[in-house]
């Protein structure tokens, strides 16, 4: 029998404040992953400044391209395609990866693949172990809070979405009130483990017959509680505040996701995005799924693959490669790109 040829993809990711390149074999095996993070820069401003992000991306782009090839010990001739995130994200930031990928495609003659950033995050799962379809994913980050149904490797549909703030955004905003530097998620998560849910913040939309979320009411309740205590000169326990906030977020995410799992009966459940690194959420989801009679396989990508990275883009691109979905040199940034909504989305 003829041995199947390996497919090697070089991917670029620059949609926000990380510039990343990676070489991935057969959509599952990371041969190299380079991530240049700008966190130190944006920490000066308390959040990502788009123009500053774009400026940093162009500083490192050629260097990290070369590093990805060197680390993987491959040359351009060993590659089969070049992939890039083309949305959603910050337009100026996306354009660095896109123009780099297009130039690389032109210079090498390799085919080009445009990848949806959210499909990328979810596809990080296949870098851990094979995904069986249909699969269901909870995608939680600073920009997104979505429950996504994966019908097959290239058809993903949103079944639940946030109506206002993303979960990660809420973490950053309440972090600011507690004097925690951006990005606040990790510290709030640590504090939450040292405190108790004593404040009973609202669990918005938890009983509604849909898979949508809302976090702006929770954020306001949190801020009001802190301001009110300030006015009375009371000092609130920051660990209990963090624990109460996190419990409200995790309760809603877990409750709605479990309901979706019961409805769609996925063979695989995936958690992706920066907030998927949250230990409180991981512990809760693991526990709830283990209690199911017919539990799906659970893939929680390691922390390194939860943040923005190019390996996940290469993984998603492999699925597009097999489906024959290629882009041409007119590929453009689509900052507000969205996955399609499921037909039964309420």
């Amino acid at each position: 029998m003829k041995e199947k040829k390996d497919i090697r993809i070089l991917a670029f990711e620059s949609s926000c404040d990380e510039t990343s390149t990676a070489v991935v074999k057969n959509g599952s095996e990371i041969e190299s992953l380079v991530v240049a993070t700008q966190i130190k820069s944006h920490a000066r401003f308390g959040g990502v400044v788009p123009e500053v992000a774009s400026r940093h991306h162009i500083e490192v782009i050629t260097q990290i391209t070369r590093e990805a090839l060197e680390e993987a010990k491959v040359s351009w001739e060993d590659l089969d395609a070049i992939a890039v995130t083309h949305g959603p994200g910050l337009v100026g930031a996306l354009l660095i990866g896109i123009n780099a990928a297009k130039a690389a495609s032109m210079a090498t003659g390799l085919p080009l693949i445009g990848v949806d950033h959210i499909m990328g995050h979810i596809s990080a799962a296949q870098l851990v172990e094979p995904v069986e379809y249909p699969a269901l994913a909870l995608q939680v980050s600073g920009g997104h809070t979505e429950i996504v149904l994966l019908k097959d490797p290239t058809h993903f549909e949103i079944v639940g979405d946030t109506r206002d703030d993303a979960a990660g955004e809420a973490y950053d905003k309440i972090g600011r009130v507690l004097g925690v530097n951006y990005p606040a998620g990790k510290t709030i998560d640590q504090w939450a483990h040292q405190g108790k849910d004593t404040f009973g913040f609202p669990r918005a939309m938890i009983d509604e017959d849909n898979y949508d979320f809302s976090f702006s009411g929770l954020k306001s309740a949190f801020i009001n509680t802190c301001h009110h205590a300030d006015q009375l000169g009371q000092e609130l326990d920051k660990y209990d505040l963090a624990a109460s906030f996190q419990a409200a977020v995790v309760d809603v995410l877990a409750e709605k996701t479990m309901r979706a799992i019961r409805q769609y009966q996925p063979k695989t459940f995936i958690m992706g995005g920066g907030v998927a690194a949250n230990l409180g959420l991981r512990e809760r989801m693991n526990k709830e799924i283990a209690a199911l009679e017919k539990a799906p396989k659970v893939i929680l990508p390691p922390l390194k693959l939860c943040g923005d990275n190019a390996a996940m883009i290469a993984a998603a691109a492999y699925n597009q490669y097999l489906a024959g979905n290629f882009a041409d040199l007119t590929l453009d940034a689509d900052p507000s790109m969205e996955l399609p909504y499921a037909e039964d989305y309420k």
């Binding site: 162009i58 782009i61 337009v91 354009l95 660095i96 780099a100 130039a103 690389a104 210079a107």
Partner: peptide, 19 residues
């Protein structure tokens, strides 16, 4: 234009670096 400059330079940088 900041964005415009980056489109041109990213492209030229990649060409020069790869080739």
């Amino acid at each position: 234009s900041y964005t415009g400059l980056r489109v041109g330079l990213t492209t030229a940088k990649m060409f020069a670096s790869i080739l």
